[in-house]
Design a protein around this nucleic acid. Structure first.
Lengths: 111, 111
DNA sequence: TTTATTAATCGTATATTTGCGATATAAGAT
DNA sequence: ATCTTATATCGCAAATATACGATTAATAAA
Protein backbone atom coordinates (compact mmCIF):
# COMPACT_ATOMS: atom_id res chain seq x y z
CA UNK A 1 0.00 0.00 0.00
CA UNK A 2 2.58 2.49 -1.15
CA UNK A 3 0.53 5.65 -0.60
CA UNK A 4 -2.12 6.79 1.84
CA UNK A 5 -5.13 7.49 -0.29
CA UNK A 6 -7.21 8.68 2.62
CA UNK A 7 -5.83 12.19 2.22
CA UNK A 8 -7.40 12.47 -1.22
CA UNK A 9 -10.89 12.55 0.22
CA UNK A 10 -12.62 15.63 1.62
CA UNK A 11 -12.00 16.67 5.18
CA UNK A 12 -15.60 16.01 6.08
CA UNK A 13 -15.41 12.49 4.71
CA UNK A 14 -12.22 11.90 6.65
CA UNK A 15 -13.74 13.26 9.85
CA UNK A 16 -16.83 11.11 9.57
CA UNK A 17 -14.66 8.08 8.84
CA UNK A 18 -12.48 8.83 11.86
CA UNK A 19 -15.53 9.04 14.10
CA UNK A 20 -16.85 5.74 12.76
CA UNK A 21 -13.46 4.21 13.23
CA UNK A 22 -13.47 5.13 16.91
CA UNK A 23 -16.73 3.18 17.21
CA UNK A 24 -15.53 0.26 15.11
CA UNK A 25 -14.42 -2.02 17.92
CA UNK A 26 -16.79 -3.74 20.37
CA UNK A 27 -14.52 -2.84 23.27
CA UNK A 28 -14.94 0.84 22.52
CA UNK A 29 -18.69 0.44 22.12
CA UNK A 30 -18.71 -1.31 25.49
CA UNK A 31 -16.69 1.49 27.07
CA UNK A 32 -19.14 4.09 25.79
CA UNK A 33 -22.01 2.02 27.12
CA UNK A 34 -20.46 1.92 30.58
CA UNK A 35 -19.78 5.64 30.50
CA UNK A 36 -23.41 6.12 29.51
CA UNK A 37 -24.65 4.17 32.52
CA UNK A 38 -22.23 5.62 35.04
CA UNK A 39 -21.84 9.13 33.63
CA UNK A 40 -18.18 8.87 34.45
CA UNK A 41 -15.91 5.98 35.23
CA UNK A 42 -12.47 5.15 36.52
CA UNK A 43 -10.14 3.24 34.21
CA UNK A 44 -9.77 0.40 36.69
CA UNK A 45 -13.49 -0.26 36.73
CA UNK A 46 -13.51 -0.51 32.97
CA UNK A 47 -10.66 -3.00 33.14
CA UNK A 48 -12.77 -5.14 35.49
CA UNK A 49 -15.77 -4.97 33.19
CA UNK A 50 -13.98 -5.74 29.95
CA UNK A 51 -12.31 -9.01 28.93
CA UNK A 52 -9.07 -7.23 28.18
CA UNK A 53 -5.76 -6.48 29.82
CA UNK A 54 -5.22 -3.14 31.53
CA UNK A 55 -2.80 -1.91 28.91
CA UNK A 56 -5.24 -2.75 26.14
CA UNK A 57 -8.11 -0.91 27.81
CA UNK A 58 -5.84 2.06 28.31
CA UNK A 59 -5.07 1.98 24.62
CA UNK A 60 -8.74 1.95 23.64
CA UNK A 61 -9.39 4.85 26.00
CA UNK A 62 -6.57 6.76 24.40
CA UNK A 63 -8.08 6.23 20.97
CA UNK A 64 -11.49 7.44 22.10
CA UNK A 65 -9.84 10.45 23.68
CA UNK A 66 -7.77 11.24 20.59
CA UNK A 67 -10.89 11.19 18.47
CA UNK A 68 -12.43 13.59 20.96
CA UNK A 69 -15.26 11.26 21.89
CA UNK A 70 -14.41 11.15 25.57
CA UNK A 71 -12.73 13.40 28.12
CA UNK A 72 -10.43 12.20 30.82
CA UNK A 73 -8.92 13.82 33.87
CA UNK A 74 -6.59 12.43 36.44
CA UNK A 75 -8.02 12.09 39.93
CA UNK A 76 -5.11 11.36 42.20
CA UNK A 77 -3.51 8.19 40.94
CA UNK A 78 -6.71 7.33 39.05
CA UNK A 79 -8.06 8.47 35.70
CA UNK A 80 -11.67 9.43 35.33
CA UNK A 81 -13.33 9.32 31.92
CA UNK A 82 -16.62 10.58 30.57
CA UNK A 83 -18.22 11.13 27.21
CA UNK A 84 -17.65 14.36 25.32
CA UNK A 85 -21.26 14.95 24.55
CA UNK A 86 -20.67 17.84 22.15
CA UNK A 87 -18.49 15.74 19.87
CA UNK A 88 -20.92 12.83 19.88
CA UNK A 89 -23.80 15.11 19.02
CA UNK A 90 -21.87 16.73 16.21
CA UNK A 91 -20.96 13.50 14.50
CA UNK A 92 -24.29 11.80 15.04
CA UNK A 93 -25.88 14.84 13.50
CA UNK A 94 -23.68 14.62 10.45
CA UNK A 95 -24.44 10.95 9.97
CA UNK A 96 -28.14 11.58 10.39
CA UNK A 97 -27.88 14.32 7.81
CA UNK A 98 -26.05 12.09 5.38
CA UNK A 99 -28.66 9.38 5.68
CA UNK A 100 -31.69 11.62 6.00
CA UNK A 101 -30.85 13.34 2.76
CA UNK A 102 -30.83 9.92 1.31
CA UNK A 103 -34.16 8.99 2.76
CA UNK A 104 -35.99 12.04 1.48
CA UNK A 105 -34.68 11.65 -2.03
CA UNK A 106 -35.13 7.93 -2.31
CA UNK A 107 -38.62 7.07 -1.34
CA UNK A 108 -38.87 4.78 -4.33
CA UNK A 109 -37.44 1.30 -4.13
CA UNK A 110 -34.09 0.56 -5.68
CA UNK A 111 -32.13 -2.56 -6.56
CA UNK B 1 -2.67 -10.99 19.23
CA UNK B 2 -3.03 -14.69 19.83
CA UNK B 3 -6.80 -14.71 20.30
CA UNK B 4 -9.74 -12.81 18.84
CA UNK B 5 -11.17 -10.98 21.79
CA UNK B 6 -14.01 -9.51 19.77
CA UNK B 7 -16.05 -12.64 20.29
CA UNK B 8 -16.14 -12.05 24.02
CA UNK B 9 -18.37 -9.00 23.63
CA UNK B 10 -22.13 -9.10 23.21
CA UNK B 11 -23.64 -9.67 19.80
CA UNK B 12 -25.18 -6.21 19.83
CA UNK B 13 -21.83 -4.62 20.57
CA UNK B 14 -20.25 -6.61 17.79
CA UNK B 15 -22.99 -5.64 15.35
CA UNK B 16 -22.73 -1.95 16.14
CA UNK B 17 -18.96 -2.14 15.82
CA UNK B 18 -19.27 -3.89 12.46
CA UNK B 19 -21.60 -1.20 11.19
CA UNK B 20 -19.23 1.53 12.35
CA UNK B 21 -16.37 -0.31 10.76
CA UNK B 22 -18.10 -0.29 7.41
CA UNK B 23 -18.27 3.49 7.69
CA UNK B 24 -14.71 3.84 8.94
CA UNK B 25 -13.03 4.61 5.64
CA UNK B 26 -13.50 7.85 3.68
CA UNK B 27 -13.86 5.90 0.44
CA UNK B 28 -16.89 4.09 1.82
CA UNK B 29 -18.36 7.32 3.13
CA UNK B 30 -17.87 8.80 -0.31
CA UNK B 31 -19.54 5.80 -1.94
CA UNK B 32 -22.57 6.17 0.30
CA UNK B 33 -22.72 9.87 -0.52
CA UNK B 34 -22.78 9.14 -4.23
CA UNK B 35 -25.44 6.50 -3.77
CA UNK B 36 -27.42 9.06 -1.78
CA UNK B 37 -27.29 11.56 -4.62
CA UNK B 38 -27.93 9.14 -7.44
CA UNK B 39 -30.20 6.65 -5.67
CA UNK B 40 -28.34 3.92 -7.49
CA UNK B 41 -25.03 3.80 -9.27
CA UNK B 42 -22.92 1.63 -11.53
CA UNK B 43 -19.57 0.45 -10.23
CA UNK B 44 -17.73 2.06 -13.13
CA UNK B 45 -19.11 5.49 -12.28
CA UNK B 46 -17.91 5.12 -8.73
CA UNK B 47 -14.47 4.24 -10.02
CA UNK B 48 -14.45 7.48 -12.02
CA UNK B 49 -15.52 9.52 -9.02
CA UNK B 50 -13.07 8.06 -6.52
CA UNK B 51 -9.27 8.37 -6.48
CA UNK B 52 -8.87 4.62 -6.36
CA UNK B 53 -8.24 1.72 -8.70
CA UNK B 54 -11.16 -0.36 -9.94
CA UNK B 55 -10.17 -3.37 -7.90
CA UNK B 56 -9.98 -1.29 -4.75
CA UNK B 57 -13.40 0.23 -5.30
CA UNK B 58 -14.80 -3.23 -5.91
CA UNK B 59 -13.31 -4.32 -2.62
CA UNK B 60 -14.91 -1.44 -0.72
CA UNK B 61 -18.25 -2.19 -2.37
CA UNK B 62 -17.94 -5.80 -1.31
CA UNK B 63 -17.36 -4.73 2.28
CA UNK B 64 -20.38 -2.47 2.30
CA UNK B 65 -22.42 -5.28 0.80
CA UNK B 66 -21.17 -7.84 3.30
CA UNK B 67 -22.16 -5.56 6.16
CA UNK B 68 -25.57 -5.30 4.55
CA UNK B 69 -25.37 -1.54 4.06
CA UNK B 70 -25.84 -1.68 0.30
CA UNK B 71 -27.51 -3.93 -2.21
CA UNK B 72 -26.09 -4.79 -5.59
CA UNK B 73 -27.46 -6.49 -8.64
CA UNK B 74 -25.81 -7.25 -11.93
CA UNK B 75 -27.20 -5.43 -14.93
CA UNK B 76 -25.66 -7.07 -17.96
CA UNK B 77 -21.90 -6.76 -17.64
CA UNK B 78 -22.39 -3.93 -15.13
CA UNK B 79 -23.14 -3.93 -11.42
CA UNK B 80 -25.68 -1.59 -9.96
CA UNK B 81 -25.52 -0.63 -6.29
CA UNK B 82 -27.87 1.17 -3.96
CA UNK B 83 -28.23 1.69 -0.25
CA UNK B 84 -30.05 -0.83 1.89
CA UNK B 85 -32.20 1.66 3.66
CA UNK B 86 -33.58 -0.77 6.21
CA UNK B 87 -30.14 -1.69 7.49
CA UNK B 88 -29.00 1.92 7.71
CA UNK B 89 -32.12 2.88 9.63
CA UNK B 90 -31.69 -0.01 12.03
CA UNK B 91 -28.12 0.81 12.94
CA UNK B 92 -28.58 4.56 13.07
CA UNK B 93 -31.46 3.92 15.40
CA UNK B 94 -29.33 1.80 17.69
CA UNK B 95 -26.60 4.40 17.82
CA UNK B 96 -29.12 7.13 18.52
CA UNK B 97 -30.53 5.00 21.28
CA UNK B 98 -27.11 4.40 22.79
CA UNK B 99 -26.31 8.09 22.81
CA UNK B 100 -29.77 9.37 23.65
CA UNK B 101 -29.91 7.23 26.73
CA UNK B 102 -26.69 8.90 27.64
CA UNK B 103 -28.00 12.37 27.04
CA UNK B 104 -31.09 11.95 29.18
CA UNK B 105 -29.16 10.57 32.10
CA UNK B 106 -26.28 12.99 31.98
CA UNK B 107 -27.63 16.48 31.96
CA UNK B 108 -25.06 17.47 34.53
CA UNK B 109 -21.55 18.31 33.45
CA UNK B 110 -18.83 15.73 33.84
CA UNK B 111 -15.05 15.73 33.69
C1' DT C 1 -17.01 -16.94 -32.90
C1' DT C 2 -14.04 -13.31 -31.80
C1' DT C 3 -13.51 -9.04 -29.51
C1' DA C 4 -14.47 -5.44 -26.32
C1' DT C 5 -16.41 -3.92 -21.93
C1' DT C 6 -17.32 -4.27 -17.12
C1' DA C 7 -16.65 -5.96 -12.74
C1' DA C 8 -15.03 -9.55 -9.39
C1' DT C 9 -11.31 -12.08 -7.56
C1' DC C 10 -6.45 -13.45 -6.72
C1' DG C 11 -1.89 -12.58 -5.22
C1' DT C 12 1.05 -9.62 -3.02
C1' DA C 13 3.20 -5.64 -0.63
C1' DT C 14 2.72 -2.51 2.92
C1' DA C 15 0.34 -0.12 6.70
C1' DT C 16 -2.43 -0.22 10.60
C1' DT C 17 -4.77 -2.32 14.47
C1' DT C 18 -5.13 -5.26 18.29
C1' DG C 19 -3.35 -7.30 22.29
C1' DC C 20 -0.28 -8.23 25.98
C1' DG C 21 3.65 -8.22 29.21
C1' DA C 22 7.04 -5.35 31.02
C1' DT C 23 8.33 -1.03 32.39
C1' DA C 24 7.77 3.74 33.68
C1' DT C 25 5.24 7.33 36.10
C1' DA C 26 2.81 9.46 39.62
C1' DA C 27 0.10 9.94 43.62
C1' DG C 28 -1.29 8.23 48.10
C1' DA C 29 -0.33 5.32 52.22
C1' DT C 30 2.79 3.57 55.81
C1' DA D 1 11.83 7.51 52.41
C1' DT D 2 9.57 3.30 51.00
C1' DC D 3 5.80 0.73 49.45
C1' DT D 4 1.45 0.24 47.27
C1' DT D 5 -1.93 1.35 43.86
C1' DA D 6 -3.49 3.01 39.44
C1' DT D 7 -2.55 4.21 34.90
C1' DA D 8 0.15 5.24 30.79
C1' DT D 9 3.62 3.98 27.62
C1' DC D 10 7.00 0.94 25.20
C1' DG D 11 8.19 -2.93 22.49
C1' DC D 12 6.84 -6.67 20.22
C1' DA D 13 3.94 -10.39 17.78
C1' DA D 14 0.06 -11.47 15.25
C1' DA D 15 -4.06 -10.26 12.76
C1' DT D 16 -6.48 -7.11 9.54
C1' DA D 17 -7.03 -3.58 6.32
C1' DT D 18 -5.71 -1.06 2.26
C1' DA D 19 -4.21 -0.74 -2.34
C1' DC D 20 -2.94 -2.21 -6.79
C1' DG D 21 -1.86 -4.93 -11.03
C1' DA D 22 -2.97 -9.09 -13.25
C1' DT D 23 -6.20 -12.40 -14.16
C1' DT D 24 -10.72 -14.36 -14.58
C1' DA D 25 -15.61 -14.38 -15.66
C1' DA D 26 -19.55 -12.93 -17.88
C1' DT D 27 -22.15 -10.26 -20.95
C1' DA D 28 -22.70 -7.47 -25.14
C1' DA D 29 -21.14 -6.13 -29.69
C1' DA D 30 -18.79 -7.10 -34.11
Amino acid sequence: MAIHKKDEFSQKEQDLAAFAKALSHPARIAILKVLAQKNECICGQLVELLPLAQSTVSQHLKELKNTGLINGETDGPRSCYCINWKAVEKFMGEFSFLFNKLKVQNEKACC
